[in-house]
């Protein structure tokens, strides 16, 4: 859990998760001094300045978010590498699936590191993982069912985690584009592994399909942009909940991922 402290502190300081208004952003910038404020403007400067509805997050804020994403990617990357290296764990017929997922997670780790470094930040070191979560899942690498279950949990959690940060990256368009294009790949993974487990590729209400229920808390939401979607469509409530994936902010994601990180 020590590895997560940096994010918790960042959250408490309000540099993450808070959607700054333009006025707030300007005040912050002026408070830091003009030079710092300008230095803090990420690439896409003109775009961001012309974009009145979106505040421009500073590089340190973006780096913190990317290091948070990197931590989750390390977790996935190590999880799949370990699974693939454990002979007899993954059904032979499913190897191509997990090799493809693993390939993507490795690529995400490399891409996030490159991006963080380019922004002047330092990529966090890879934590040590305990995929038994302190003994809760002792059979994670001996039971294929358990392995698939945790895989689905990590992928669905990843989708929610990236989704939860999109707004915080809104002023840094390149980084936002990267986050969105990782986000949809995690969703492809999630769908595939869910189907492997015999579930649907999409999330019905907040059904956890045998996984820890809190991963799916809030997925039953039917209110979008203040509109109760069930009142404007003929499809069932369940289908409406399936049609919209819900974000998760940093604290609950870290709470869920925490037990796997030493």
């Amino acid at each position: 859990m020590k590895a997560l402290k940096i994010f918790e502190e960042a959250y408490e300081q309000g540099v993450i998760e808070k959607n700054f208004s333009r006025r707030e952003a300007l005040a912050r910038g002026l408070g830091l001094g003009l030079k710092t404020a300008l230095a803090a403007v990420p690439f896409g400067l003109l775009d961001a300045l012309g974009n009145k509805a979106q505040a421009t997050p500073s590089n340190p804020d973006i780096v913190k978010i990317l290091n948070y994403a990197l931590t989750l990617e390390y977790l996935e990357d190590t999880f799949y590498k370990t699974g693939l290296a454990t002979s007899g764990l993954i059904a032979a017929g499913d190897m191509k699936i997990f090799m493809q997922i693993s390939k993507h997670e490795t690529a995400h780790v490399a891409l996030l590191k490159t991006t963080i470094t380019a922004l002047g930040g330092t990529p966090v070191a890879e934590p040590v993982f305990d995929f038994t979560a302190g003994g809760k899942f002792p059979d994670v690498f001996t039971s294929y069912q358990r392995f698939m279950g945790l895989s689905a949990a990590f992928e669905d959690l990843g989708v929610r985690a990236y989704k939860g940060q999109t707004v915080n990256l809104a002023g840094a368009k390149d980084v936002l584009a990267v986050a969105l294009n990782i986000h949809s790949v995690e969703a492809r993974h999630a769908s595939e592994v869910r189907r492997l487990r015999g579930s649907k590729g999409w999330i019905n209400f907040a059904e956890a399909d045998g996984l820890p229920g809190f991963i799916y808390d809030g997925e039953e939401n039917v209110i979008q942009l203040g509109i109760d979607v069930t009142t404007v469509t003929t499809v069932s409530i369940g289908a409406v909940t399936q049609a919209f994936d819900e974000p998760l902010s940093m604290p609950p994601v870290l709470q869920i991922a925490g037990p796997f990180i030493i």
Binding site: N19, Y162, V185, R188, S191, E192, P247
Partner: peptide, 19 residues
């Protein structure tokens, strides 16, 4: 930002479909 949230909520479902 609200519309961005909506786009993100929908795109992952489209990705689930595609997969």
């Amino acid at each position: 930002a609200d519309y961005l949230k909506i786009a993100a909520k929908i795109v992952s479902v489209e990705a689930r479909h595609a997969a």
